[in-house]
């Protein structure tokens, strides 16, 4: 996947984000702020049309997944590195948020600690394994994810083992109570998750346009060329790896709090694959790809319960079709069609 990614996928993030700052600057707002506003409108639109907590619940999951997949977009879409272990970082964020409050640390601090731990681990582990590329990197990250998963399922005294553990502490509802708003907890988590996803997307878009982002995208096209331009390739890759781990950990912490219960499967291999699949399906080069991928793979199974027997066939079929007909993912494909129609 990575090999293909680096050679055949034209750098969508490069084209769009590079063209964007100039155009956006003319209009007076930066690309990051614009992304934030677009996400904010989508979050609000959702809240307008959702009839019940169930929709808010699915919406919350969509935003949390979007946030996690935005991290994958940075790593896979910008730099062209495949990680099959990001569920591990996701789980570190989730488990820190679950475990630390049992030792008297308040939830917000526990969240921060989890995110910092995931970032730290990514920094330490990133350097050696990012020397690998393509399939070798995928396997190394796969191993990392599995190690984390094993620790979570074996250290029962700390994590509750394979049966998982209760996450006590913060409810987003109380946040809104502070400002005098009474919301159901499903609605409160929806707003929190949506806000987090919007911030995350804005940061990712700003990153793409920054000098660091340009360096990352240069590496996407060619390690050697980037190095000859004076880019510290090892450092830049490590940075992207850490950033994407931070995204996953924040998403994990949010999920743990919103669900109130976590199991080691949050850090399992299938979850890692799911995250990469969402990114590739929606279009790994853009944060909107992250959103669409997360939306389809989170909401579609809910629609397909009506024909439960065919659910996997339909999902599989959609993925095969997308990948054969729209190799860069849904969002870039539709965006291209749009441009062609206009011109």
């Amino acid at each position: 996947m990575a090999g293909q990614g680096t050679t055949t996928v034209p750098n969508g993030a490069g084209q769009t984000a590079a063209a964007k700052p100039r155009r956006a600057a003319r209009r007076g707002i930066g690309p990051g702020l614009r992304t934030f506003l677009i996400f904010a409108v989508l979050v609000g639109l959702g809240a307008l049309i959702f009839p019940s907590s169930y929709f808010y619940r699915v919406g919350t999951l969509v935003w949390i997944n979007t946030l996690a997949v935005t991290g994958i977009v940075v790593l896979l879409g910008y730099v062209g590195l495949v990680s099959l272990g990001h569920a591990g970082f996701f789980a570190i964020g989730a488990y820190a948020t679950a475990i630390l409050p049992n030792y008297g640390i308040p939830s917000p601090l526990a969240m921060l600690a989890g995110v910092a731990l995931a970032g730290g681990l990514a920094l330490v582990v990133g350097r050696p394994i990012l020397k690998l590329s393509g399939y070798y990197l995928a396997i190394a990250t796969l191993g990392l994810g599995m190690l984390i998963w094993m620790v979570l399922s074996k250290e029962a005294w700390l994590t509750g083992g394979p049966d998982g553990m209760v996450v006590s502490g913060m409810n987003a509802r109380n946040l809104f109570k502070l400002v005098g708003l009474k919301l159901k907890s499903a609605e409160a988590w929806y707003w929190v998750a949506g806000f987090a996803a919007a911030i995350g997307a804005a940061i990712a878009v700003n990153l793409a346009g920054s000098p660091t982002g340009r360096a990352l995208r240069a590496i996407h096209d060619s390690d050697v060329a980037a190095r000859s331009l004076g880019i510290d390739v090892a450092r830049a890759k490590s940075l992207a790896f850490v950033i994407s781990a931070l995204y996953a950990a924040v998403a994990g912490a949010l999920l743990a709090l919103a669900n109130g219960y976590i199991t080691p499967e949050t850090g399992g291999f299938m979850h890692s694959v799911e995250m990469v699949t969402m990114a590739v399906l929606g279009g790994a080069s853009s944060v909107f790809g992250a959103l669409v991928g997360a939306l389809i793979l989170t909401a579609l199974p809910q629609l397909l319960t009506v024909f439960a027997d065919y659910e996997h066939m339909v999902l599989g079929g959609i993925m095969v079709l997308t990948m054969t007909l729209m190799r860069r993912g849904l969002v870039p494909f539709i965006a291209d069609l749009w441009t062609r129609r206009k011109s």
Binding site: T16, I38, L42, F288, V292, L295, L330, V331, P332, W338
Partner: peptide
């Protein structure tokens, strides 16, 4: 363009 694409899918 991308935002519209996202909205349509939503």
């Amino acid at each position: 363009r991308q935002a519209v694409a996202a909205g349509v899918s939503a």
